[in-house]
C-alpha cells in the first residue's frame, strides 16, 4: 500500500515564498505532493482564523510562509505576522493540539531548495502524527 499522504494547506506570500515554490518547480526539485497552495499578498494578511478554519475543515496541517525579516515588500508585514504567530503557536499547543501541525517559515523567492526542504520536513512531521482529528468538524 502506498504511504499516507497528508493534506497540508500552504499559505504563501506572493513576493517571496510563492515565487520560491515556483522556483522549486521549474528547477524540478522533488518534494512530496502534500500541499495545497493559497497565495496571499503578505504574511501579515494571515488572520489566525484562516489557520483555525483550515484545521476545522480537515487539513492535516498548515504552513504559513513569508519573507525573511527585513525583506517584507510592505516593510513591516512579516514583523506583525511574527507577533501573531508567536502567540498563536504556544496557545494551540497549550490547548492540546499537536504543535507540528501548524508551522511558520521564511522563504525568499530565490530559495527553491529551502522550499522543497521545508515542505518535505513538515510532511514528514505530520505523517508521524497521522491524520488530524482533534479540531476537525464532523458534519
Amino acid at each position: 500500500m502506498s504511504e499516507w499522504q497528508p493534506r497540508i494547506l500552504a499559505i504563501l506570500c506572493n513576493w517571496c515564498s510563492y515565487a520560491g515554490a515556483d522556483l522549486a518547480g521549474v528547477s524540478r526539485m522533488q518534494y512530496p505532493p502534500s500541499i495545497r497552495v493559497v497565495r496571499i499578498p503578505c504574511s501579515g494578511r494571515v488572520d489566525p482564523l484562516f489557520i483555525m478554519k483550515s484545521l476545522q475543515s480537515g487539513f492535516d496541517g498548515v504552513l504559513v510562509s513569508g519573507c525573511h525579516p527585513g525583506d517584507c515588500h510592505y516593510i513591516s508585514g512579516n514583523y506583525v505576522a511574527r507577533r501573531k504567530f508567536a502567540v498563536l503557536k504556544p496557545l494551540l499547543e497549550f490547548i492540546g493540539l499537536e504543535p507540528n501541525r501548524v508551522q511558520f517559515s521564511w522563504i525568499s523567492a530565490g530559495e527553491g531548495d529551502r522550499f522543497a526542504k521545508v515542505v518535505t520536513k513538515i510532511t514528514e512531521d505530520i505523517r508521524e502524527l497521522g491524520p488530524a482529528t482533534r479540531l476537525v468538524k464532523k458534519t
Binding site: L63, P69, G70, S76, Y79, V80, R82, R83, K84, F85, A86, V87, K89, Q103, F104, S105, W106, I107, R114, K117, V118, K121, I122
Partner: peptide
C-alpha cells in the same frame, strides 16, 4: 498595544528551517 507593535530582533525560534 503589544500586537500592533514589533521589534526587529525578536526571538523567532518557532520559525521552521
Amino acid at each position: 498595544p503589544a500586537m500592533s507593535d514589533f521589534r526587529e530582533d525578536e526571538k523567532q525560534k518557532f520559525i521552521m528551517g
